[in-house]
Write a protein that binds this DNA or RNA. Structure first.
Lengths: 223, 223
DNA sequence: GACACCATACCAACCAATCGGTATGTTTAT
DNA sequence: ATAAACATACCGATTGGTTGGTATGGTGTC
């Protein structure tokens, strides 16, 4: 008793951790129940099936990370190019602690489920796509200002950034070294800098002044 | 009867396909036996355990892909910069057919096994690292010729290339669209081109002359 | 304000199916 | 004959999922 909804939330939180550590199939319902101090009956009271729980976990992940990124400091950066680079710094700063703590649930899940669990695959894809979309206006603005004639689209670059991040996580797991992820982000940052060259007369590198970006954007909450 | 060693090889070939499609845990020993038309007794005659079979499959994968890349046409390109770009073209050209056919076994396996099966994780890491190493002399030579003062190392770029490829596969699975992988490779190619700028007086773009690269390299077999 | 009513949250015990693995053969090439 | 290469039948453990039940707190009725 005590806090209603607590068992469900506890299960979802535990699911984020466990799925990232062991993957979807290797994570058993009992694993989740044990870790959340919940009986199996409670589990199947809240979720129709293991797959439904994973879907709920993906949704949980999306709201969790959505809030994290909405409140992140890079939104305070006015210049879109600098803001995009600050986003990458933010991603790099999150590479800390153990691998299952900073890697991406969606990328991990989709690797094993893309063929056998279409619903999960679609949910992971939608989640990644949605996150990529949050970058598009920034990239669009940066492109207009710094590389108006570029032959790449903002959507394409936004997706590519996600790809590099996912790939960095894979390599970090393979080499058992978080630095592999940091290295990938560093190369990615260099790429973005090269895509958006700073013309000499336009080097208005502000950094700390907090002005809201005019177009559609998450509200820049102070943290 | 018939061909000795055939059952083992058949199991390994089937394992490459199945592990890539369903992942390690979701692939059962019976799955492999059924697909290879082999009984369970035969399976455990050739492999001590499921994990041992997966390790053998990784080794099988390494020799298979090792041979594929050794014989690949990009080795025929003399200029190291052009050879590196030809490698990326080769990787892009392999993105065809269904996802489980062109994605990477090592990246798929390591995502679920990095925490629970250290032996598999290490084998996948070693395999990726070994493949990255085949690019290092080429990158080194390209760097010496085109960007001698660059602040990145050949090893770092070789690893980054693998990261982008892995990330492209993840995104292709998530968005259920191989074009995501191609997009990532296209961005990666642009990055490499930018890292190794062609000076105007050095634009000696040969293409077809087959000269062995001087340092340690796989023999450039004609195909 | 007492009491029936009921939905939600949770629990312990259980189930058929399937898992990786084994024991004990039989076949086949040398 | 001998050993490797299979095949059959089986095992205990675990899997996702179900069962029938209880505890609790809110709500309508008189």
């Amino acid at each position: 008793m005590a806090d209603a909804e607590s068992a469900r939330t506890r299960l979802l939180d535990v699911a984020l951790r466990t799925f990232r550590e062991k993957g979807y199939t290797a994570t058993t319902v009992d694993d989740l129940c044990r870790a959340a101090c919940v009986t199996k009956g409670a589990f199947f009271h809240h979720f129709d099936s293991k797959e439904a729980a994973a879907l709920a976990a993906v949704e949980h992940w999306n709201t969790r990370t959505g809030a994290l990124f909405e409140a992140a400091p890079y939104w305070q950066v006015e210049d879109p190019r600098a803001r995009l680079l600050a986003y990458l710094d933010f991603r790099a700063a999150r590479v800390r602690g153990e691998l299952p703590e900073f890697t991406c649930l969606l990328g991990t899940l989709v690797q094993e489920t893309f063929a056998s669990h279409p619903a999960l695959q679609a949910a992971c894809g939608a989640g990644i796509e949605a996150h990529a979309q949050t970058l598009v206006p920034t990239i669009e603005a940066a492109r207009a200002r710094y590389a108006p004639k570029a032959d790449w689209s903002a959507e394409s670059l936004a997706r590519h950034i996600q790809a590099v991040l996912q790939g960095g996580f894979v390599l970090a797991k393979a080499l058992n070294d978080p630095r592999a992820a940091l290295e990938a982000i560093a190369h990615l940052k260099r790429y973005v800098e090269g895509l958006l060259p700073v013309r000499r007369n336009e080097a208005r590198n502000n950094a700390s002044l907090a002005t809201r970006f005019p177009t559609r954007h998450p509200p820049s909450k102070r943290r």
